[in-house]
Simulated scan of single mutants.
Amino acid sequence: MKKISILITAALLIFACKEDVKLTFETRHIEKSTDATIVVNYPKAIGTKAVANKINQQIEHVIANEMNMANTPENDISIDEAVSQFDQEYKSFKRDFQDSSQKWEAKVDGQVVYESPELICLSLQTYTDTGGAHGNGRTTYLNFNPETGDLFEQKDLLKNLDQFKKVAEEAFMEQTKPKDKDDTMEDFFFGEDFQLPSNIGFTNNGLVLLYNNYEIASYVQGITKITLPYDQIKDYLKVNP
């Protein structure tokens, strides 16, 4: 009887902890234009401290590394530090190339695009221009467990991957509009068969498969985005959107 009471008490404590998790998001804005042009808007989690901290650390990690000019990722750097480093790199560039009229840019636009009791999805759109033929734009989806703040990996979100891949490939063929009408699947995937992207997001319209520039096809193809309605893929989801 004593063991049963302990188990019931533990279960109630776990349930209470889950019920106590509260999260909201506020927009943080950073802007600097004296040297490099830097504009950063991103959602910052507030509420249950341990959960919010996990989410915010991951958001800052992704944004900071989008502005990172080094060849290796920065694991422990804040957005403010990344902004300062990007600006310092531009100043160094100007000292070395005083005749250049090139002004560096770093822009980030982040927002919460989907929330449910089982998942929070954030979209981070980043753009950097440090010279060259064109700047580099990228969209990143981050999917979080709202109870723990942990970042979901693809294996945490999808099941029966072989079957799901077939459904995704059919949707890809229906929704993709290649610049060249004679393009084949191998042309998109550099001689390979269809591949799922690393970037998967949740929206009100359905699950989004997103391929950034250079991940498939050529740069002129731009970002390729495929949307799968939830009612068509519910058997392949491990979370309930």
Rank of each mutant, 00 (worst) to 15 (best):
G135C: 07
V108F: 05
L142G: 00
L122A: 06
Q163L: 12
S92C: 11
K91P: 05
G131E: 08
F144G: 01
N136M: 10
S101C: 06
R138F: 09
T139I: 11
V113W: 01
E105V: 12
H134W: 13
S101H: 05
C121H: 00
Q85W: 07
K155M: 15
F93M: 01
S123C: 12
E118L: 08
T130I: 14
T130F: 09
L122P: 03
F93S: 01
K159L: 15
S84V: 10
V113M: 07
V112Q: 05
K159Y: 13
E147S: 15
T128E: 07
Y141S: 03
K159F: 13
E118T: 12
S84A: 14
L161T: 14
A133Q: 14
E118S: 11
Y114D: 04
L151Y: 06
D87N: 15
Q102R: 12
K107S: 14
G135H: 08
L157I: 05
D99M: 11
G131F: 07
S100C: 04
S92K: 15
E147W: 15
L124V: 01
L124S: 03
V113C: 05
S84N: 10
Y141N: 06
L158I: 10
Q125T: 09
L119D: 03
Q98M: 11
Q88Y: 13
E115K: 11
S116H: 10
P146C: 05
S101L: 11
V108Y: 00
Q163W: 12
D156F: 03
N136I: 12
E118M: 10
K103A: 09
K155L: 15
F152R: 03
T148E: 11
P146D: 02
Q85I: 08
K91D: 08
T148I: 10
G135K: 02
T126V: 05
G137F: 04
E153M: 15
D87V: 02
R95Y: 10
G110Y: 04
T140D: 00
Y127Q: 14
A82R: 00
P146M: 05
D156A: 06
N145P: 05
Q111Y: 07
W104D: 03
T139E: 13
T126Q: 00
N136H: 09
L161N: 14
E153N: 15
P146R: 00
F93V: 03
S116A: 11
G132K: 07
G137E: 08
K159E: 15
